[in-house]
Amino acid sequence: MSLHEVNPSIKAFAVVISILILSLFFDPITPLLTIIWAVSITFIFGRISFKKWILLFAPFLFIAIIYVWSTMLFPRLHAGDSVIWKWGFLTLTAEGFQRGVSLGLRVLSFATLSIMFTLTTKPTDFLLSLMQQCKLPPKLAYGIMAGYRFLPLIKEEFQTLQNAHRVRGVARARTIPEKVKQIKRYVIPLLAGAIRKAERTALAMESKGFTGDKNRIFYREITVSRIDWLFFTLMIGAVLLSTFISWKLGYLQFYNGEL
């Protein structure tokens, strides 16, 4: 079994449901176990290069550390929390620390699940699957595909704009009004060009007989098999198992949104 072959919609669905379940709880153990699970299957069944993976993971690691930092700096203090460390206005409590770590791990658990999806799914397959399995209207799906095609073009245009502005002698923006103007100087030409091209693309698609008709015979059929549902069950099962272990260890806590 390869993660690349799992039906993209079911894969996405499994990731989203896992994240929704994880959101219900608030403790360090559940996300930690989920992280171990998600990372293992990414490398075992996804055959992903570590370099690619860490490139995507690193920013989340940074965010997680800041999360821990934020919750420690601005904790929700409760009477009876045990203070471990105090310096000036900074107070670190054991409970605060645990909450911080929980929040950080939670971010990382979402991230590892998402990266598993991202690195093992081709964009075209995802859209084809959304049309074939989730009944996404072809008008929208092919619209997205057409827009997605513009990306490399937009990237090239952006670089050209940078050079062109250098030649014109546009100074670097320093103040906020200057920055807003600078955003406008980039965004407007990019958008104006992209919109005109988009209108031409729409015409070209219609000229090939595209009407947005929902009855479509697809050249590439994206199928759903038992293996896909097995994958789905395994994913949800793993998350539930994590919560169960956490509960057994006495860490599990429902996330209660009250302030």
Partner: peptide, 16 residues
């Protein structure tokens, strides 16, 4: 279709 694709292109630019 024109509107859908323009919407999608706006979305792509802003996704970046």
């Amino acid at each position: 279709l024109r509107e859908v694709i323009v919407l999608s292109v706006l979305a792509v630019v802003f996704a970046v």
